[in-house]
């Protein structure tokens, strides 16, 4: 059963297709379908003719002609806009220069930091190892007097030189 709503949808679709047909916006197949309908259905043919007549009537709408005054005033408007833009750019010049200097300074600082990090990573400091072994170097004389590392290790294992509180184990 065809409901009223689906009939309206069908009418709207046909209407769209007829308008698109008049605007030459249909694919070949749909165009042929509309032409078959026009040939067989007097209502469709009439609808197409009415829509076309009304569309042709729109040719009566006025076409505007711009006069010299319009052209001149538009050019003047644009010239004034360019002038305003130039003025704005000029006003912003000191501020822009300051910003440019700041940006350059920041870029330089960043470059410096990156260079330092890269050099430090590629070529480590020659005193780095000395710094790491600073405790050993400080006590080097004592270690020498002890004779050997094995002897010091045995002293440690015997807990002879531990701080008093470290010996009190639970």
């Amino acid at each position: 059963m065809v409901t009223g709503e689906s009939k309206n949808d069908g009418d709207a679709l046909l209407q769209e297709q007829i308008v698109a047909y008049l605007d030459q916006e249909l694919d070949e197949e749909t165009q042929a379908h509309i032409e078959r309908l026009m040939a067989t259905d007097v209502n469709v043919r009439e609808q197409v003719q009415q829509l076309q007549r009304v569309w042709d009537l729109l040719d009566e709408l006025p076409r505007a002609e711009a006069d010299d005054r319009f052209t001149t005033s538009t050019v003047e408007l644009i010239a004034a806009d360019i002038e305003k833009e130039l003025q704005r750019q000029q006003d912003q010049l000191p501020q822009r220069q300051r910003r440019r200097w700041l940006a350059m300074g920041a870029a330089l600082a960043l470059t410096g930091w990156l260079s330092f990090t890269a050099v430090d990573w590629l070529w480590p400091h020659p005193d780095e190892q000395l710094l790491q072994n600073l405790d050993v170097i400080r006590n080097l004389d004592s270690y020498r007097q002890a004779g050997s590392v094995e002897f010091l290790q045995s002293l440690k294992d015997d807990r002879l030189f531990l701080e008093p509180e470290a010996t009190h184990e639970p």
């Binding site: 006025p62 505007a64 319009f70 538009t74 408007l77 806009d81």
Partner: peptide, 27 residues
């Protein structure tokens, strides 16, 4: 300019307003 003015004049219904809008378009 004539094409833009024609569309705008028929759209807004007033020549003076259409001219203002057309100038805004070109700007």
């Amino acid at each position: 300019q004539n094409r833009v003015l024609t569309v705008l004049e028929n759209l807004v219904g007033r020549r003076d307003q259409a001219e203002d809008l057309a100038q805004e378009v070109f700007l």
